[in-house]
Design a protein around this nucleic acid. Structure first.
Lengths: 216, 216
DNA sequence: CCCATTTTGACAACATTTTAACATTATGTT
DNA sequence: AACATAATGTTAAAATGTTGTCAAAATGGG
């Protein structure tokens, strides 16, 4: 039995396709060719066809791709046809921002719990979810079907909290703490390192200015 | 004059090196070999040497790398030896979270202005910076040295605001709006598409469960 | 219903990125 | 001061990712 492994490079592009196709669908566009989509998204048509073909051909020769169908299929690949319950650890501004995001819910991500060690935040209501003390986390994870834990706490403690979450049965972590988590094989971690992103921007500002100077 | 272009793949890894080296420095470690660092960071030693060599050899054969020196040099490459002033457009929870981040300041990123169209937020104080109405944005950008604009507003309007910012002279945008900005050549944009990141996580949860089933 | 046109899916060529191998250079111990 | 050891910088090979090309298939107009 051959399982074709899809590269993360391809997976990384799927959400963007999904976004553009959703917009097209909302605009009432019924069909689109890889050529048209490539002009819209500023990527090569070849890449689009190659990417979609990883999953076995969603198009029709001479016609192109049906927008609604393709949108739905990519959604399925991304698991958006399923419901994922998530909890947020850390009820600061970032945690509150993520908890308040209505768009996540539209994609099947249900905000179902929030925890913080700061007593001043405990009891606070974030879009219908009450902040609970950290001590409640274990029972909550064990008694509820939680698919994803979102870590919006400072780097100190993040590794420990992640280990605890895993021991309670959590299988996926969306990590905003600026540290690499140490989790066993099979636990999915997606990192969002904001300061890394800012540094990349800083590099590119710099680099551009430098190349300007050198061209004089 | 030949300007060797460094690939974004390499740049993307620099912040992580920077973080590990900073930690090592704080622990008082003086020197490290690519071998040791590779075990710590779980990447190949070859990649580490290759990456550093893009910038012309920071190490010493038979010795390794001096932690403090390497840390500083990478900081310079990333432009962290310079000061960058940033403003935040959108004073919601996400904007407030980013404005409140003390670590950015440590890296030379100075939070100097904040804007929102919601009158209820105008006047609010975020770490010493008062939220101003959107109408003040133009004058502020033109009268102050602003290096980076952070966009933490909904996707509706983000494209317009970005265009305005560029017309006022902004050269770099850190974009959290879930939309692709349309900016002229030479304007740096770094996107943080949170829902894309969440979808990738969702895919990987799914994929792992599936491969488990198929192996039974 | 035929045929020109469109457009995919597949494959091959090309480019980039990553890893491996090793010659060279510095270290530090005797 | 010589030499064994350590570890870089560099080059080569392998792996991965992207783009170009084209045959085959479907469309849709006449």
């Amino acid at each position: 039995m051959e399982i074709k492994e899809i590269s993360q490079a391809v997976i990384g592009r799927l959400p963007r396709y999904y976004r553009y196709l959703g917009d097209l669908k909302d605009e009432g566009v019924e069909r689109i060719s890889s050529q048209e989509l490539s002009e819209l998204m500023k990527v090569t048509a070849s890449q689009i066809r190659q990417d979609f073909n990883n999953f076995g051909g969603f198009g029709q020769q001479g016609y192109g791709y049906n927008v609604e169908y393709l949108y739905k299929e990519i959604g399925k690949i991304l698991g958006l046809d399923q419901t994922h319950h998530f909890i947020i650890i850390g009820a600061g501004n970032l945690g509150q921002a993520l908890g308040g995001y209505l768009n996540f819910e539209r994609r099947g991500f249900i905000f179902s719990g929030m925890f913080d060690q700061n007593p001043a935040l405990v009891g606070k209501d974030v879009r219908g979810v009450k902040v609970q003390p950290m001590e409640e986390m274990e029972a909550f994870v064990k008694n509820n079907a939680v698919d994803i834990a979102v870590l919006t706490i400072p780097k100190t403690g993040a590794v420990d909290v992640a280990e605890k979450l895993v021991s309670y049965g959590i299988k996926a972590i969306w990590n905003f703490a600026h540290v690499d988590l140490n989790v066993p094989e099979g636990i999915q971690v997606e990192n969002v390192h904001l300061s890394d992103s800012l540094m990349k921007l800083s590099y590119n500002i710099n680099r551009y200015n430098q190349s300007l100077m050198e061209n004089q």
